[in-house]
C-alpha cells in the first residue's frame, strides 16, 4: 500500500515537476529542503494528492516541517485515508 502510494507520488514528481521521468527518487530524499520542489510545484503536488488519493493537504502544510520526503508524505496520506 505504502509502496504503491510512493510509486505514484514518485512518478508525478519526476515526470511532471522535475521533467526527468528516468530519475529515481529515494524514499528519504529531501524534496523541499533539498530544493527539488519549489513553492509553486508544491501546490501542484497538493492538488495531485487531493485528486489521486482524495486526501486534503492544507496550504499551511506545504513545507518541509510537515513532510520533506516520500516516506513522510505517504505516511501523511495514509493517516488521512
Amino acid at each position: 500500500m505504502t509502496q504503491e502510494i510512493q510509486n505514484k507520488l514518485s512518478a508525478f514528481i519526476t515526470g511532471e515537476i522535475l521533467k526527468q521521468p528516468d530519475r529515481k527518487l529515494g524514499p528519504e530524499e529531501a524534496l523541499i529542503s533539498g530544493g527539488l520542489i519549489d513553492s509553486f510545484s508544491l501546490v501542484d503536488l497538493a492538488l495531485f494528492v487531493e485528486e489521486t488519493f482524495g486526501v486534503k493537504v492544507d496550504d499551511t502544510e506545504l513545507n518541509a516541517q510537515t513532510f520533506d520526503n516520500l516516506n513522510q508524505l505517504a505516511a501523511l496520506i495514509q493517516s488521512r485515508q
Binding site: 513553492s39 501546490v43 492538488l47 496550504d59 513545507n63
Partner: peptide, 14 residues
Amino acid sequence: RAYVFNPFTRALRA
C-alpha cells in the same frame, strides 16, 4: 507562503 502564495496559486491552478 501558507496564507497568500499557496491559496492564490491553488485558486488560479483550479
